[in-house]
Design a protein around this nucleic acid. Structure first.
Lengths: 146, 146
DNA sequence: TAATTTCTCTATAAGACAGATAGAATTTAT
DNA sequence: ATAAATTCTATCTGTCTTATAGAGAAATTA
């Protein structure tokens, strides 16, 4: 399961994506509207800035805003930033590869082979899941439910 | 990522699947051959027994053995038993559903929509991943690498 | 210079994770 | 009946992660 940190991060990013190119948004605004504890959100946005996804401005009229276009920020990136690997086994992780200590032969491991396929499919889905894509999904669902 | 508990469980199950219908196998044998701390493995096998996947016999000649055929035990079941939900968000979990506190409208949530698709694909893959399937994969890989 | 807002640093309470320890209960073989 | 083998139960512990809260420093703008 995703940590709250990651969930909050995604919600904040979607919020900012909806206001893309409209100038900085206050932390407090995002915190209120997205139901996120403000102090926790501060840390999250800071991490997103350090990762180059957001930028910030201090003082009056300040706040946070997206550095990249909403179709250039995908969920795989956000998840890796906060929760680490997307793979379910360290031995099939691309960015965080590590050998399984208990494993006898990685090359012929059937368990690894299965989880390698799972990882690939999941990463593909999450890379297609950009902020723009999520907003599009939301619009589609709103139409449907009317 | 899977917990060590789940990883050990899968390894132990694959081991037992290879000896299906050959009588009980000692905990100590599995622990040694699969590089699993014995006492930890005891707890794991006990849980698998309580879940109806394994059965055990005490005393001399005792040990653990599979209750179901290797093609009837899938990895989704094992993961759920030890690590809980497979879904990445509680609001898209079938067996462990829970509302996201911070969510404004579940019905039209684009984030939920994305993770719903991810969950479905992952569960399908993991249900196809039975013990028999894993052993078949291993055999294929051994052939290839010769 | 005063107000606004982000940024830094520290602390912490609760729970999960990965085992270790000690011994009780059961079964089989002699 | 007894000894050996083996699973089963219950408790405990140290380390790490999660999800915050608090106090105030630094920067920016009016």
């Amino acid at each position: 399961m995703l940590s709250k940190k990651t969930k909050y991060a995604i919600n904040a990013l979607v919020h900012l994506a909806k206001e893309y190119n409209k100038g900085p948004i206050l932390i407090s605004t995002i915190a209120e509207q997205e139901n996120i504890p403000q102090k926790f959100l501060e840390a999250i946005l800071l991490d997103l800035r350090k990762a180059g996804i957001l930028n910030s401005k201090k003082g009056k009229g300040g706040g946070y805003y997206l550095m990249k276009a909403p179709d250039q920020v995908d969920i795989a990136e956000v998840m890796r930033l906060f929760d680490g690997p997307i793979a379910l086994l360290p031995c099939v992780s691309y960015k965080y590869y590590e050998r399984c200590e208990e494993c006898k032969d990685e090359e012929t491991c059937g368990i690894r082979d299965l989880f390698y396929e799972v990882r690939n499919e999941t990463v593909n889905q999450l890379k297609a899941g950009t902020l723009a894509n999520i907003i599009k999904r939301e619009q589609r669902l709103k139409h449907k439910n009317k």
